[in-house]
Design a protein around this nucleic acid. Structure first.
Lengths: 108, 108
DNA sequence: CCTTTAGGTCCACAATGTAGACTCATGTGA
DNA sequence: TCACATGAGTCTACATTGTGGACCTAAAGG
């Protein structure tokens, strides 16, 4: 067994929020998705810091696009989870799934 | 929305491993469960440090019991997830569940 | 103008994750 | 009886993540 590092929980959530946002994965939508799912506020600091770290680890990428609505013509970043990011997400999910198996949370 | 802190991912896994171990939730079994699910080694340092922190937060408790087998009569700690710990586990799971909804990991 | 909304950067610090050395007490086999 | 091996546990130190908040810029709309 290796000493592999895990994707942090918040990082995991940011990546998942990007996936959920899909085509409209810009900063605003992602953060909104995140706050709704987590049921709490996500400060800009926490949010962008995490995006940067994920980018450094090559778990996400982004491209500039012109906004259709809202900011007239101003470009905005559109985020995507990289293949490596997808792999990490699956890995994390599988580990938790194993531990959650047999409805261990329900049976008490 | 509040600025509530989350249960870290490793902490989450330790609590779940305790639940999975059930009646035989002693250090050895818990660690074994953990390593199997995560597919990697868990050092003693990481393990006990996390147990201590979880105890400080009142997410787990333990009682001394005489071991049946293995260490002749030497007492060993038996761990339990506290009600507060169960609550946190559910909270974490629900947040991730929301983000994993619609099989977002499968559809790509 | 002034305020609101959105996107970002920077900084600092708190909370978590993790390894490894070092004890101590058996149980076991040579 | 002495050397291991095994399991429980402590302590230290450092790396990685999580998080808030001050600041800045550029529109959009009174």
């Amino acid at each position: 067994m290796s000493g592999k590092t895990f994707l942090g929980e918040f990082e995991q959530m940011v990546l998942l929020a990007i996936l959920q946002a899909g085509d409209s994965a810009n900063a605003y939508e992602i953060r909104k998705e995140l706050e709704q799912s987590a049921g709490r506020t996500v400060s800009k600091g926490a949010f962008y810091t995490t995006l940067d770290r994920l980018e450094k680890k090559n778990y996400l990428s982004w491209t500039l696009k012109r906004a259709e609505k809202g900011r007239n013509g101003l470009p905005q970043r559109h985020f995507d989870v990289s293949p490596a990011g997808m792999r990490e997400l699956r890995r994390s999910r599988d580990a938790l799934r194993n531990l959650w198996r047999d409805g261990v949370l329900e049976s008490r």
